[in-house]
């Protein structure tokens, strides 16, 4: 132990001499010998830091998972809302009629089938069907015609399993046109059934 100290002192002396302008002398640097105590200390310190890091990592992970959970909750809420909006849009899809007719068009049957499915997937849902006409017919007769149009769609929904009590009907004749023009393009848009949600439309499931 002592000799090592001496060596170190000597080494320092040599280095001092050399620094003072003496010719270079090869210095022999002794190989370091492990110090058991310091190793243990270092090991302890390392273990401590690992623990700390681990704790930090755990905390981060926890926070991250909480964040993810929150995000997921928000995402699913948004998704649910998105679904409701989607379903509402599907439900609101109008069906159309030929002039002075209340017969269902074959290309509108799919739209009505979709409404049947929505009503069956959402048992709390109640709707009102309103029948509308173009401006060409007689004003008052159009109330009767719109009534037929609304009830024709209701009849279809009921025939396909929807409880009649969940569907109201009304006619607005030509009183509430969608398109304001005075040509066939406006008229064909105005000869329609609209769907309005009366109750149970806050959250809607996709069929």
């Amino acid at each position: 132990m002592k000799c090592l100290h001496l060596l170190v002192v000597a080494g320092l002396a040599v280095a001092a001499v050399a620094a003072c302008g003496g010719g270079p002398k090869p210095a022999t640097t002794p190989a370091p010998t492990p110090n058991a105590d310091s190793i243990a200390a270092a090991e302890r310190a390392r273990q401590d830091s690992i623990a700390a890091a681990q704790a930090e990592a755990d905390r981060r992970a926890r926070e991250e998972s909480e964040r993810v959970a929150r995000q997921r909750a928000a995402d699913s809420a948004a998704a649910a809302a998105g679904t409701t909006t989607d379903v509402k849009n599907m439900l609101a899809t109008m069906i159309h009629f030929d002039f002075d007719k209340s017969d269902l068009r074959s290309d509108d049957v799919g739209i009505l089938d979709q409404k049947v499915a929505i009503l069956q997937a959402n048992p709390g849902l109640r709707i009102r069907l309103s029948g509308h006409c173009d401006e060409r017919g007689s004003d008052e007769y159009n109330l009767a015609l719109g009534n037929r149009r609304a009830n024709k769609a209701k009849e279809y929904l009921v025939q396909h399993g929807v409880d009649a009590g969940r569907i109201e009907t009304v006619s607005y004749g030509e009183e509430r046109p969608l398109a304001q023009g005075h040509d066939e393009s406006a008229w064909s848009q105005n000869r329609r059934d609209e769907v309005e949600i009366l109750a149970g439309g806050d959250v809607l499931k996709k069929p």
Binding site: L143, N151, V170, S171
Partner: peptide, 25 residues
């Protein structure tokens, strides 16, 4: 229901009108 086109009888006592229901008007 959907009641429309009111018309008075000449003595003013009766009101005739149209009623639209599921069965028609």
């Amino acid at each position: 229901a959907l009641d429309f086109t009111p018309a008075f009888s000449p003595d003013g006592k009766t009101l005739a009108f149209s009623r639209a229901t599921e069965e028609g008007t």
